[in-house]
Design a protein around this nucleic acid. Structure first.
Length: 713
DNA sequence: GAGTTTGAAACT
DNA sequence: CAGTTTCAAACTC
């Protein structure tokens, strides 16, 4: 089976295509339980983790017809917190890879630690007794279910024995709920640092450790329960469905009170491993497309910073190769390979579980893997947020029988899910795969869930305004439900495939942009991939954030390359440093720089900007208050109006009334002047007074109608 | 809104 | 690496 077409492979950046990790894991642990349980592990590993400069296993495994789900981190240069990825595969073997991270794991009954340069935390944390083995390779923890039926029985009888894996101050608890022969690889993040995550050296002394519970459950009898509101999975029939439950429960300092969130992953169950075809992926429930409709899906990644949402989106099996890729190594990629043979009698689960509504609620998918992740409410997260998943992901549909997805995941590490895990369950229980995506991707996905995803033909965004926002979610206009991460681009000549384009440079699809001849969309995946590769060839860090941490002792934020301004004095937005609201640094090559700490020009600008901001805020507040008062007044006077002739009389606006009103306003202005009020404050007071006058006028008119108003100031 | 300025990206 | 060109955003009028 071809996991991915050679053409696509050739187009992908090496870092995206690298899959050595997956291959290396089994090879490096020939005696691990995983290998024992899965003699043909190498050929059946359904998923792989891309690690830079590693050979891809997916291609090797493809001929076996095993399902693969790949979440592929591609940028070794990313900050560790962004290196995470989750690999979940269906089929005879299953891998769940959590990256990035410092591979740290406990060894259960069998543990092989091949992680180089990483410390293994075993000790008291380990409690695994299930027929799983853990082997970590390249920062992966591979949980392989022991082939032995006895072990399986023992595991069943003993219930889901938890594994406690501690890494960097976090504890990852892995439990099983039945099902067999599904190796799971958890690749842990490096030591890096995720804000709020207590780093520990694995000595068990880390304060306030975080717990992440991963429960892997299987069983053909399990029926996915959607929106159960809890961590429980209701077992029902549906023998076609194989259920894997991965429950992540985090008791972290970040979200100590949040209930665990559940993510459901399901896949068709097929007892005949030989018949289990590679399957997976589709980034969101895709309605079965018509002949001419390609099951492409749009995934959006939003800004790099801030809280990250991750979404697990069910992927219906389509006879297409799908790709999602984000330009640049800034993102992690999810590679999913889907076979065509699987049946999908599964019942559709909820079409979508959005973060906003499900936050904090466990979400149980229709089947298989359920991941419960404690999620912070993430107030900043709108239900539909355009990709600051931003960023971009692309799907290429090709007439092949496998599906392959490459999806960026800024923080795909399961252990990093808490900030907002969005579950998008597959509509069909059967041929579904799930991908964990940053919420931003989901946001963009949500903007055009069916136009861009279910129908490529409907995605005519190659020029001019993009169509993605034309299908607002839940009947709400795109303007209301989306919040663009940045301004729309206006590219005219670059086809949005060069770094001139902000969208492209930030790894995003163009969305609601004003560009012409745009190729930064799903329809031009090939060109886009080429462009990405070109950019990366020219500058491997082309897609990395320009504003990063400076050297120790320097400012926390600084431009990675420095600016090169010559005429702006670095005090205009032409300057990337100034635009990012940071000072120029020693690496800048600017001339006549005035963007330094003691610069009087800069201070003046800052003061002006602050004053302007305050003024705007005050005016906005005054307008809001006035509007509210008027609305309230209208509400209260409505009965009066409607009870009479139906309209307020015009005659009440007499000359006297107008003069009285003006007098009131002038009086207010005088008082403000006498008390040395700021102009903005005076304006606010006058506006308020005007509001009062209007209220009195309307009230009086409503009561007396024809009477001239007597306004009390 | 059109035209100009600016500096990063792309190119040579 | 340096100089030049291209490009799109920022800015001005």
């Amino acid at each position: 089976m071809d996991v991915v077409s050679p053409e696509l492979n050739s187009l992908l950046p090496d870092e995206i295509m690298d899959t050595e990790a997956m291959e290396e894991a089994p090879h490096s642990q020939p005696d691990s339980a995983a290998v024992q349980a899965e003699p043909c592990y190498d050929s059946t590993v359904p998923m792989e983790t891309d690690v830079p400069q590693t050979p891809s296993v997916s291609e090797d495994a493809a001929p076996t017809g095993n399902s693969q789900t790949q979440l592929t981190p591609t940028d070794s240069t990313l900050s560790p917190s962004r290196h995470s990825s989750i690999l979940i595969s269906s089929g005879p073997s299953r891998l769940v890879t959590l990256k990035p991270g410092l591979a740290t794991s406990t060894a259960p009954t069998k543990t092989t630690d091949s992680v180089t340069g990483t410390s293994m935390s075993t000790g008291g944390l380990q409690k695994l007794t299930a027929p799983f083995t853990i082997s970590s390779v390249n920062h992966q923890i591979i949980l392989n279910k022991v082939a032995s039926s006895q072990a399986a029985e023992a595991a069943k009888s003993a219930g889901p024995p938890p594994q406690v894996i501690k890494q960097e101050g976090q504890k990852l608890l892995v439990t099983t709920i039945g099902k067999s022969g599904q190796p799971i690889v958890l690749q842990l993040p490096h030591a890096a640092s995720k804000p709020g995550v207590v780093q520990a050296s694995g000595d068990g002394k880390a304060p306030a450790p975080q717990f992440k519970v991963v429960t892997i459950a299987g069983g053909s009898e399990l029926k996915p329960v959607v929106g159960s509101g809890g961590n429980q999975v209701t077992a029902v029939q549906t023998q076609q469905l194989k259920t894997i439950q991965v429950t992540l429960s985090e008791l972290s300092t970040q979200s100590p009170v949040m209930p665990p969130r559940t993510i459901a992953l399901s896949e068709p169950h097929n007892t005949n491993l030989q018949n289990i075809a590679s399957k997976k992926i589709a980034i969101s429930p895709l309605k079965t497309p018509s002949k001419n409709v390609k099951p492409v899906q749009s995934v959006t990644v939003g800004g790099v910073g801030g809280s990250q949402f991750k979404t697990i989106i069910p992927l219906t099996t389509q006879q297409n190769v799908q790709q999602i890729q984000v330009p640049g190594s800034r993102f992690h990629y999810v590679r999913l390979v889907t076979a065509t043979t699987s049946s999908s009698p599964g019942q559709p689960s909820t079409s979508s579980m959005q973060t906003g509504e499900q936050a904090g609620k466990p979400m149980v998918g229709s089947t298989g893997v359920r991941m419960s992740v404690p999620v912070v409410p993430a107030p900043a997260m709108k239900q539909v947020v355009p990709k600051p998943l931003t960023s971009s992901a692309q799907v290429v549909a090709t007439p092949q029988t496998q599906q392959r997805l490459i999806m960026p995941a800024i923080q795909p590490n399961l252990t990093n899910l808490p900030l907002g895990t969005v579950l998008a369950p597959a509509p069909g229980g059967g041929n579904m795969g799930y991908a964990v995506l940053p919420a931003q991707y989901v946001a963009q996905l949500q903007q055009s869930p069916f136009v861009t995803l279910a129908s490529s033909s409907g995605f005519q965004a190659s020029s001019g305004m993009q169509t993605q926002a034309k299908l607002p979610l839940n009947g709400v206009s795109a303007a209301e439900t989306t919040s663009r991460p940045r301004k729309p681009c206006n590219c005219t000549k670059s086809q949005c495939l060069k770094l001139y384009c902000d969208c492209f440079a930030n790894g995003e699809f163009c969305n609601m942009c004003n560009c012409n001849n745009c190729f930064n969309n799903l329809e031009h995946e090939t060109e886009r991939l080429k462009a990405i590769k070109t950019c990366l060839d020219r500058n491997p860090e082309a897609f990395k954030p320009k504003i990063g941490k400076g050297k120790e002792g320097e400012s926390d934020r600084r431009h990675s390359k420095g600016c090169n301004c010559k005429r702006s004095g670095c005090l205009k937005n032409y300057c990337e440093c100034y635009e990012a609201k940071i000072m120029c640094s020693s690496i800048c090559k600017c001339i006549g720089c005035k963007n330094f700490e003691e610069s009087p020009e800069r201070k003046t600008l800052m003061h002006l900007a602050d004053a302007a901001e305050v003024r705007v805020q005050q005016q906005t507040a005054a307008k809001t208050k006035l509007s509210s008062q008027i609305s309230d007044l209208l509400m209260r006077t409505t009965p009066v109006i409607s009870s009479g002739s139906g309209r307020l009389p015009y005659t009440f606006l007499t000359k006297e009334v107008v003069e009285a009103t003006c007098e009131c306003l002038l009086d207010k202005a005088r008082r403000a002047e006498q008390t040395d009020q700021l102009t903005s404050e005076a304006e606010r007071l006058i506006l308020e007074e005007f509001g009062h006058c209007l209220m009195n006028i309307i009230t009086s008119a409503g009561k007396a109608k024809a009477d001239s108003a007597s306004i009390n100031c």
